[in-house]
Design a protein around this nucleic acid. Sequence first.
DNA 1: TCCCACACTGTGAGCGCTCCCAGAATCACT
DNA 2: AGTGATTCTGGGAGCGCTCACAGTGTGGGA
Lengths: 336, 336
Amino acid sequence: MSASSRPRRPTVEDVAAVAGVSRGTVSRVLNGGHYVSPDAAAAVQRAIRKTGYVVNQHARSLVTQRSDSVAFILSEPQERLFEDPNFNVLLRSCTQELAERDITLLLTIAGTQADRQRVGRWVTAGHVDGVLLVSEHAGSPLIDELRSRGLPIVACGRPIGHEREISYVAADDRDGARQMVSYLRSRGRRTIGIITGPLDTPGGVDRLAGYRDVIGEPDPRLVGTGDYSQASGEAAMDDLLRRAPDLDAVFVCSDLMALGAVSALHHAGKRIPDDVAVGGFDDSKAALTSTPSLTTIRQDFTRVSAEMVRLLLATIGTENRSAVTLPTDLIIRNST
Amino acid sequence: MSASSRPRRPTVEDVAAVAGVSRGTVSRVLNGGHYVSPDAAAAVQRAIRKTGYVVNQHARSLVTQRSDSVAFILSEPQERLFEDPNFNVLLRSCTQELAERDITLLLTIAGTQADRQRVGRWVTAGHVDGVLLVSEHAGSPLIDELRSRGLPIVACGRPIGHEREISYVAADDRDGARQMVSYLRSRGRRTIGIITGPLDTPGGVDRLAGYRDVIGEPDPRLVGTGDYSQASGEAAMDDLLRRAPDLDAVFVCSDLMALGAVSALHHAGKRIPDDVAVGGFDDSKAALTSTPSLTTIRQDFTRVSAEMVRLLLATIGTENRSAVTLPTDLIIRNST
DNA sequence: TCCCACACTGTGAGCGCTCCCAGAATCACT
DNA sequence: AGTGATTCTGGGAGCGCTCACAGTGTGGGA
C-alpha cells in the first residue's frame, strides 16, 4: 500500500539498465562526464529524464565525505535578524554566491543555549562542509566545539577572543568610526558624544576605539551604550542629554539606534543638525528615508559576503586561517 | 598532513572496540537503548564520550531512508520575510515545535525561478522528509514538482488551486474579515472601504470575500489593493480617498498596510477614528504600539505552527491530506 | 528435569553511491 | 604487423550505518 503510493526511487542502477550502460558510466556522467562517449552520455541523459532520477545525496555524501552545503549560523535571538537590515543583505548575498558554485546554504538559528547544543551536534553530524558564523558574541562555546571537530569556519566580523584561531571578514569598523568623528570635528562640532553597541561585539569595541583615536580619552558623560535596537538608541540618547546637555554632536554606532536617538532629540526640542548633529553607522535604507536623512558609514556587505564565501571554500580542504578587513565609507547627508 | 590535522572521525566500530561490545550494541544504544544491558549501555556511553563520537547522518539516512529534517520553504522575494512579523513567529514556533521531536528545520528561500529549481532538486535529493510551504502564490510549479516526488507537504494558508491535493493550515481569514466589517458597521460606519492584499493569495481573496459577506457587492470605488507593504497601503489609501472622499471607515487587510493607510489619512487631514475608522489584520506588534493603536484581527500563528508540524509529521508515512482552519479574533483598540 | 519465554549480543547483508583498477577498443606511429 | 598511448567501459570494494536474524544465557513453570 505504502509501496504502491510511494514507489521506490530510481537508482543509478535503474538508470544504467534503461540506458544500456553500467553503473560506472552513469556515475561518470553525473560527475562531469569525463571519459564518456557522446553516445553513452546521451543515452544516460535520456534515461535520467525517463526515470526521473535524482541523486541520493546521502549515498553520495557517505562516499565523498562532503555534503555540498554550508551552514549559516546565526547565534543571536531571532528578533535581531529581522530588525537588522544587514543580516538581510548578508544572507541573500551568501546564498547567491554559494548557489553559483552549486552549494546550498542552510540557515540555522541558535538563539538559546539549548539551540546551540543542538546545532553543534547537527553540524558535526556531517550535514555541512563548513560554517559561516554571524554575530557571535565573545565567549560563546560554539566556536570551540566547531573548532574541535576541525570544521572550517569563517566569521563575519572580528570574533573577539578567537582572532588568531578562525578566519573572518570584517568591515573596517575602527576606521569608519574615525572617519565619522573626524568629519563631525571638521564641521566645527566640539562636544561629540557616542552611543556604542554592546561591548562584547567587535562593532561595539572597535567603533568606540575609532572614536577614541580622534577624541582621545573621552569624558565618561559623553559615552552611552545600546544594543543596536531603536529603543535602546532612544534611551541612551535621553541619558546622554541628561548627563551632557551641552553636546553638539553624537556618533551613534548603528542607524537603527540613530533613529531612536533622533526621536529622543526631537522630544527634547533639539534641532538636527542645527543644535545636535547625528551620525549613524551601516548606511541602511532607513538612514536614507528618515527625516532628516542620516549621515552614516557604509559597510559593503555584498563584498563581505563574497569574501566570506571565498575564504570558506578556500578553508575547506586546507587548514590555514586568514582575516580580511574591508574599507568603510563616509556618506554625508542632512543630519550633520 | 591533512590526515594528521583532520583525523578520521570515529565510527560505531571504534566506539564498539573501546566499549568492548559489538557494532550492533552501540547502534542499539544510539537508537533508544532497548535490549541493552545496563552495563553495556554505560560502557558505550563512556566510549562515546571518550572517542567524541557523533553519528554520521548520511550513513544513517542511507539505511533509514529518512533525514530527520524538514524544509521550511519560503517562496517569496526575501524582503517580505523581514518586513512581515508573521513569518518571524511562524519560523520560530515551527523550529521550536520540531526541535522538541529532535527534527531540524532548514530554512530555504526560493525567491526567483532559478532558486525554485535548485530547491526542487535539493529537496528531492533526500535532504528532507517533508516540506512546510509558506506563502506560495497561486500557480507556482514547485508544488507540482514536490507532489510528483511524493514528498509530504503542509502549506501555511489555503494553497489556491491545490486545496484538494495538499494539506494546509489556515487561519479563518474570511470569518476574521466578517468580524471586522460587522464590527465597523455596528459602530455606525456606513461607507466602509477595503484595501486588500494581492488577489493571488488566500489572504487577498478570502478577506475580500468576508468583506463581501457583510457588505454585499461592493462599490468598486471602495476597493483598493496593496501588496502587504506599508508603502502600498499608503498609496492605496491615497487612491481610495481620491475616489471616495466620503468614506468613514476602511478595513485594511494587514497591519503593515494599515500603518501606511493611517499616515495617508493623517496627510489628508483626517482624524482617526473620528473621521475615518481603520481596522487592520494580523495583530502585529506594530498594531499595538502605533498611534492610535490599531483595531485588528488576531491570527494565532503559534497554533498554526503547531498544527502544521503535527500535520506534517502525520503525513510523513501516510498518504492522506487534510486541512485545518483555525479561528481568528477581533481585537478592539483606538483606531475605530 | 526439561522446555520455553525472554533478555541480551554478535554478525551478515545491504542502503546508493563513487572510486579505482583491469581490460577492451581505437588510433597513431614505428 | 607490433607497440604504446589514449579513450572508454564494467564491476568490485567499501563509505558508516541499521536491520534482521541467529545464537547465547538466564529464569520460571510444567
